[in-house]
Design a protein around this nucleic acid. Sequence first.
DNA 1: TCGAGGTCTCTTTTT
DNA 2: GAGACCTCGA
Length: 846
Amino acid sequence: MTEPSKITSQNVPDHQPAAGGIAARARASVGPKYLSGLNPEQREAVETLDGPVLVLAGAGTGKTRVLTTRIAHILSQGRARPAEILSVTFTNKAAREMKHRLGQMLGHAVEGMPWLGTFHSIGGRILRFHAELAQLKSNFTVLDVDDQVRLLKQLLQAENIDDKRWPARMLAGLIDGWKNRGLMPSQVPSGEAAVFANGKGGKLYASYQERLKILNAADFGDLLLENIRIFREHPDILRQYQQRFKYILVDEYQDTNVAQYLWLRLLSQAPSQPALPVAAAPDAIDDPSRDAALAAQALAPAAARLKNICCVGDDDQSIYGWRGAEVDNILRFEHDFPGAKVIRLERNYRSTGHILAAASHLIAHNEGRLGKTLRTEDQDGEKVTVTGSWDSEEEARGIGEEIEQLQRQGEKLNEIAILVRASYQMREFEDRFVTLGLPYRVIGGPRFYERAEIRDALAYLRVINSPADDLAFERIVNTPKRGLGDATVQMLHDHARKRRIPLFEAARAVVETDELKPKARGSLRDLVAQFDRWRAQREVTAHTDLAQIVLDESGYTEMWQKDRSADAAGRLENLKELVRSMEEFENLQGFLEHISLVMDREGGAEDDAVSLMTLHSAKGLEFDNVFLPGWEEGLFPSQRTLDEQGRAGLEEERRLGHVGLTRARRRAKIYFATNRRIHGTWSTTIPSRFLDELPAANVEITESKGGSAWGGTGGYGASRFDDMEAFGSSYSTPGWQRAQANRNRGGGRSGGGRGGFEEEATTFSTSSSSGPDFGSFSSRRRGPLTIEGELVAKSTGTTSEFSLEDRVFHQKFGYGRVTKIDGNKLTIAFDKAGEKKVVDSFVQRA
DNA sequence: TCGAGGTCTCTTTTT
DNA sequence: GAGACCTCGA
């Protein structure tokens, strides 16, 4: 961690050449080694060092390379020292990648890039230096969503608000949204504040902020919002940072929200400016639009001198609108930063011709774009494939087989990725891969520190570090069980509130009284004594040892050792990993500061394994082979996005598809299933409209390879596409056309009022009572099954046609005997393959 | 106070 | 189908 004093220290290097001097230009024209290999646009983006620059970098055009080379260029030209460059990314992954590449380019110089990180980690860092200006101590805790929700729940209870009707999670979302837009409680438009709990929303936001201060805690949004407040209220501090950061680089600019925009905007003004007039924000803004919000934020006039800010982004890859990102920020860059130079990178170095054409064609359906035309000099390669499957299980099976085939052809599993829209899609693949023995890793997923055992362990450490952290104390006061239940905690709360002290101090006081039953009193006293001891030990014990001691002495480790459940061993392993990971930090404080912001799960990258992740977390990655399952209406594009965001949501979904396709270097394989299990029940789905938007010339329809389980040659997949030779602007099977017709008629039928497709997926879903009997179903098995609802029902509620002990045959597992029936799911003891659970439609009577 | 067992809801994406 | 939440009996 850099010391606070370093912020103002300005040890300017003594060899700083004049900006743009002849010598510098001469050097540049010959070009240092790191510039070689850049194309002209990239080179321009690297070498245009003065003034605002917007680099519109399409997928695979060398965005990260430009950013890192630009930093290298600034450093080697002596324009700034490493600590004078502010370089922000959105994800830790991106920050790490940049550090890594810089390290390769520059050797040891990365050590000194203290201001390369995510918006939140840098905001958090700045906030720690000035914590007292936000009524916090520098060891404040960063709350995650879980803590946030628990805290809000308490507030709702205190206000006697029914948290069934007004869920804490919803309020958390609202507050987060306000913070993303840079709004303090007093600035929330009154109309918006009123939507929650009959007008209490604004008040709750205010009291939530108050509680945070008392708890010595900040949430993610605060990390930037408090920065902005401090910058506004203390122009001298702002000026320090403006002076310090000679160059600002922003990655993924299209994903910035209003708060991030304001933050950047403040920092990017030239330091010589006299202190900005700090306009008092009005108490309420009635128009929630961006312009009004920004106007009320009293931005410096557009003519303010701006310094060297370089934003890199791609409007076609803006996929975080739901999180408050404003594509508008990038669309308006030239307006916001007058005199900005805009450089387009359109030469794609990643994908083959067909893939790029498919992606470009798809994204061309969006209206709000700056417009770029990606081109490649690569060969056309293989066409993008579209494969229909009967259901999501067949889809997983088919993909599994294709992967095995690729593996046989010598493809590395590391070069294979499956990108899903929603994380619940992953399970089916995991199940399949476990069956196949195919190594895979899930990227993203629940973060390491979000696991219960990690959060528990952290809670112990948080209480040691920050005794006012009531949320942490509450979490572990009865974990492991100490006989301190709700009643005791409630009592502590009353005490704490009355005397305005933290829960921990309340506990200390209460054990001196006889308000508690002897048993509870005894264990609470022990707990308080333990924490006192651990805090004392902290001074003399290494933090990793301390953590181990705490886990052991508290009985937490023992709790899991005694646990007989299957995942207990894994949890103990995670705890060990946690202690190990602490070694990277100097002390407990430093560890806790970073854990919530910087720690994400890595590991296993050396092993050859298939990557499984959401489309969102795939951004910035690339693979030779990309599988894109689940291209169905409702799932992708997501119904919820459509409902909530309408047309803008649809465009964002389309961008997500564009992101997915452009991850692929050589093969992109799209899938859709006709039936998908959602919440445990089967629903019928129709293919995604995005499939229609792919250019016929670059796409090939293939047959599902997993369809063999249907018996008969060719299986279902072949028949599905029998009539599809002419793949054009629409499919030609009767079912597809019917679906299209259904989609198009009845606009305005639903409350959403946007087109008629909103209810499509549910319209087709089959209730258990209307399911066909399997006799008629199997008789149709070879016919051209369509996607009409009445033909495809296969719901869990249907009683199976099989009986216990029936002898059955399964295409893949061979012969077996039914041992258990649960709806349409059979447990079958196969003669060769052992016991498996299968859906009854996949087996036949032997 | 605790655990078992039942009911209910919810499922997008993440710093 | 899982996980959160609630109720009830010990």
